[in-house]
Amino acid sequence: MKFTVIGGTGLIGSQVVAKLTDAGHEAVPAALQTGVDLLTGKGLDQALEGAQVVVNLANSPTFDEKSFEFFRTSMGNLLAAGEKAGVGHQVILSIVGVEQVPQLDYYRAKALQEELLREGPTPYSIVRATQFFEFMNAVMSWTSDDKTVRLPVTPVQPMAAADVASAVFEVATGAPLGGIRNVGGPDRFPLDELGRVTLAAQGDARNVVVDDQAGMFAVIEGDVLLPGPDAHLAGTHYRDWLRESH
């Protein structure tokens, strides 16, 4: 089969392209670097020509209110180009609990992307993943200084990017779900504990202080970021991943 992977040069996209290729499929990475612009539509028709499945892993360059326009425009262009090309399955990567975090512009924008896909003309699948292991250092950097990292106690169940790519690959190569598959990691942590585990593994002597006003995740209430009982859980544990990646 032929797959077009939008955002196919990124962290998840490059791994999805590799998995599809290894499985004997034709996988075309589509991104700004390959001449495809989702916002203008430039290069989309050529990238989707002959594709049976489109995997959309493109992300907004910002996490503020501008992300609405990115997902609205890109999803509209992609659905129109896909219908024109006769694509039979559109897949997107979203976030576990995305519709339950209206306090965050980026989450509301991703929820809009899901809505546009559901209302579109093509059979679809939505893969909702929890937070990636690879982003933990960035999360800590938002609210840290030389001595202290401030984090809320928000419950999370993160997963490795490689496991996210495997989940996307599995869904993309199957029949359209017409709905959502939730995926997550095997272990739950309060975010502050996850910070301590990360710093200890990296030999970082900074202290983690609980601050329920700190950072993007401070506004999230309850356990809405946890994948729930119906989720497909990956096997990679965070502590094992830390050991292997350092």
Score class of each variant (00 low, 15 high):
174 G>I: 07
126 I>E: 03
209 V>R: 12
161 A>G: 08
117 L>N: 07
23 A>T: 12
19 K>M: 13
208 V>W: 06
119 E>F: 01
57 L>T: 06
193 E>A: 14
142 W>Q: 13
68 F>I: 07
96 V>E: 04
59 N>D: 11
229 P>A: 06
9 T>K: 12
23 A>S: 14
14 S>K: 15
74 S>K: 01
65 E>L: 12
154 T>D: 08
240 D>K: 05
241 W>D: 10
141 S>D: 08
39 L>A: 07
83 E>W: 00
221 E>L: 10
14 S>T: 14
89 H>A: 08
37 D>I: 14
190 P>Q: 00
218 A>M: 02
81 A>G: 07
236 T>N: 01
95 I>E: 05
175 A>C: 10
39 L>S: 08
182 N>C: 08
211 D>L: 09
153 V>N: 05
60 S>V: 05
168 V>I: 09
43 G>D: 11
107 Y>P: 03
236 T>Q: 03
208 V>N: 11
146 D>Y: 10
158 P>C: 07
21 T>W: 01
65 E>W: 15
44 L>N: 08
128 R>C: 10
31 A>M: 06
54 V>K: 00
89 H>Y: 07
156 V>M: 07
173 T>R: 14
199 L>M: 04
75 M>Q: 07
45 D>R: 13
107 Y>V: 03
200 A>Q: 15
55 V>W: 02
244 E>F: 00
183 V>D: 01
91 V>Y: 04
121 P>Q: 03
165 A>L: 10
172 A>G: 01
36 V>N: 04
230 D>C: 06
154 T>V: 13
16 V>I: 12
210 V>G: 10
186 P>G: 07
43 G>I: 06
164 V>K: 04
233 L>N: 09
91 V>S: 04
103 Q>L: 10
158 P>H: 05
102 P>K: 08
53 V>S: 06
113 Q>Y: 06
